[in-house]
Amino acid sequence: MSLPEIDLGAGADARLEPADRLRRRSPWSRAAGRFSTDRAAVTGLVVVTVFFVVALGVWLGWWGGNWAETGGGQWQSPSAENWLGTTILGQDIFARAVYSTRTAFEIGLVVAISSTLLGGLFGAISGYFAHSPVDAAILWLKGVLDSIPFYLFVAAVAFALDGQPFAMHIAMIATFWTTTARLVRGEVIKLKRLEFVEAARSVGLATPRIIARHIVPNTFHILLVQATIVFVAAIKSEVILSFLGLGVQDGVSWGLMIAESTTEVIAGRYWNFIAASSFMFVLVMGFNLFADGLQDALDPKRAGR
C-alpha cells in the first residue's frame, strides 16, 4: 500500500509555534499558574509564610526566647514593654504566643509528614494488593484505630508513654494516617487498572518499582492536600489536648495559654485568651484558604489554563 508522503521536515517548525509556547509547562507549573490567580489562596499562603518565618525565628533563637521569664508585673495591660500584657506570673504574653507558633508548627509538620508518609505507604500497598490478605490486614488495622475515640486514644498513649513529650505526636500520627491511606487506596485501585501500569509491566519493571515510580507519583495531589488538612487538624487537636492537660508537657502552646486563661477570664483578664486564640485562628484560617486553593489548583478537571 502506498501512502501520501507526509512532510514532517521543513514545515514542522512553523506548525509547532503555538505548542512551543506551552512547551515547558509541566502539570506542576500549570497548577502553580492556577494557584497564583486565586486571591484567597495567595492570601492564605502569605499568612502561612509569615507564621512559618516567626516559627523559624523562634527555632533559631532570634525571638521568643524570653517566654518563661517572670520579669514583668502581674497582669499588666498592653504596653510598649509588653505588647499584649503579662500573665499572672508576669510573663510576656506576646512572647509566649510567638513561642507557641513554633510549638504549633513543630507538631503540625511532624504529624503531617509522618502520617502522610505512613498513609501513602499503607494506602499504596493495600490498594495495589486489594482484596489480598495484606490489604485485609491493613484495612483491619485502620478499622481498629478509627473505632477508638480520639481523645481516649491520646490519653491512653500518653499514659502508656508516661508523660513522654512525643506521646501526643504518636497518638495523632497513629490516628491521622488512616484517612490518607483510605484515599490513596481508592486512587491506587483506580490507577492500577489503567493501561500505563500494564505497559510498565510489559516493559519488564518489577512490582515495587511500578508502585513507587508509576503509581504513587500519580497520587501526589491527594497526598499534598491531605498533608495540609492533617497539618491544620494537628494544630487544632494540640490546642484541645493541651487544654485538657494531655498535650504539650514542656514549653508553651496556644492550648496551654487558653487553659491558663480559663480562670483569668472570670477575673476579667482577657489577654492570654485573646492572644492565643487569635494567633491560632489566623494561622488555621490562612492554612485553610491555602489548602482550598491548593486543592483547586491540583484538580486536573479544572485544568483550563
Binding site: 509491566r201 510489559s202 507519583p217
Partner: peptide, 27 residues
C-alpha cells in the same frame, strides 16, 4: 517472573490500544 521481566521490553514488547492511558501522565 524475574526471567520473564528480563524478556519483557527487551525481547518481546507490546503496544497498546489507547496511547493516552498507556503512557504515565506524570512523566
Amino acid at each position: 517472573e524475574s526471567r520473564l521481566r528480563k524478556l519483557r521490553g527487551s525481547e518481546i514488547s507490546m503496544v497498546f490500544q489507547e496511547p493516552l492511558t498507556a503512557l504515565n501522565p506524570v512523566y
